[in-house]
Write a protein that binds this DNA or RNA. Sequence first.
DNA 1: TTCCATGATTGATAATAATCAAGTGCGGCT
DNA 2: AGCCGCACTTGATTATTATCAATCATGGAA
Lengths: 232, 232
Amino acid sequence: MRPDDLPEVRELQPFKSMKEENLAELMHAAFLQNFPAQVQLITEGDRADFLFVVIEGCVELYAKSNGREAVLAMVRPIGSFILAAVLKDAVNLMSARTTEKTRILMIPAQNIRAAFEKDDAFARAIVIELAGYFRAVVKEYKNLRLRTAVERLANWLLKYHKDQGQAGEVKLPYDKRTLASILGMTPENLSRAFGTLKPYGVSVNGGKVKLEDVEALEVLAKPNVLIDDRTT
Amino acid sequence: MRPDDLPEVRELQPFKSMKEENLAELMHAAFLQNFPAQVQLITEGDRADFLFVVIEGCVELYAKSNGREAVLAMVRPIGSFILAAVLKDAVNLMSARTTEKTRILMIPAQNIRAAFEKDDAFARAIVIELAGYFRAVVKEYKNLRLRTAVERLANWLLKYHKDQGQAGEVKLPYDKRTLASILGMTPENLSRAFGTLKPYGVSVNGGKVKLEDVEALEVLAKPNVLIDDRTT
DNA sequence: TTCCATGATTGATAATAATCAAGTGCGGCT
DNA sequence: AGCCGCACTTGATTATTATCAATCATGGAA
């Protein structure tokens, strides 16, 4: 595979900063793979053999312990996962599965590490990338520690409402069962949480949620840039 | 300040890998500060002006939202904090306060960023450092998502029991109120959690916890290297 | 020593969330 | 159309955790 086969990857931050020849070498070792839905890509505890880049589709990162399972994040194009494990040559802390038909670029871990050693600009770009990831998890952690389930849902709705252009409606990007797990609650509780948000102008219709009183919802949600803002 | 004024910092991973002259320059800009207990060092939302390195004492990282407060981590010698914010030239996601008399090395953020640009080895060392931080937060997040309060306490005890040499006793490194917040529960609940662990050979006496049936405790705790192990 | 302040514990109650058990409703299929 | 199958919802109950209030140490300070 060559760099120009996937122009979108070339625009991805850590790759954009690489020297042309190093990128070519990296891409040469990489390969593009198509997966159907519900394919297990990695399992927590296994060695991280590849860096994964989602080109099309969607991947769910999750973890288990005891009998419980929690969805930790969803990765959509163009996003990568298990960068930290690859760099540390460590074991995956999360499992990953496709949720739909998905096209993924797989780059062997040793090639990533070689490029990291060889290419200074790449190494620096990865720092910024990782720092961003780190801050994202800290925000998730704060979200869980400092808010109730209803508050998490309210803030999630406000965030996605903004993402989708503040049209007074939010289209749910995944089914409610998945959303519930992302928000750290059971599906039953998500239903009820939507119920308690009804007085705040929130009405659900299948995969569409209407927000008819954003102000009121914000009073309840108390959004916080240090938790909800992806850019800070 | 010169590098040899603080030999322990020299041994710290990202600094150890720096070129001698760059380290000298960095240390020249840095200064050592003594703080009494309960001093607010940084506040969430403020710009990250310094990288902090705890030389002696202890610092508590915490965050607030709504009326709630959560301790996110404790930093002990030799440990640093707000590295990610410094590198991204961003705002702090957490606040920090000393919990006791503490000696801290403060390195101006712009000097850290300058060294990061100039010194390739330093940049690479920081990647590994950050990747470790990232994985640590992911583990904390999993701990919170996948376990009840009692399980978190049980695993915490086992972890510190191992740290302290498996002597059948764990000395609590902070007061119970702080421990409760670290574990994501109220002080009242921590007391009760200790109570429910009594049948598993756990007995508390002030700041000392005796573990008389580690096997039984492990059956309850179900420790998981992908959550509890600091090295994986 | 006594007193006080503070942290820790205990009990009672309330809030929050999970579990279990039916239902409901919608989309796809025959 | 009619019948699944499946996701979602709803209700009842339980588990878990937080809150509020009171009491109990315990370790200085006077």
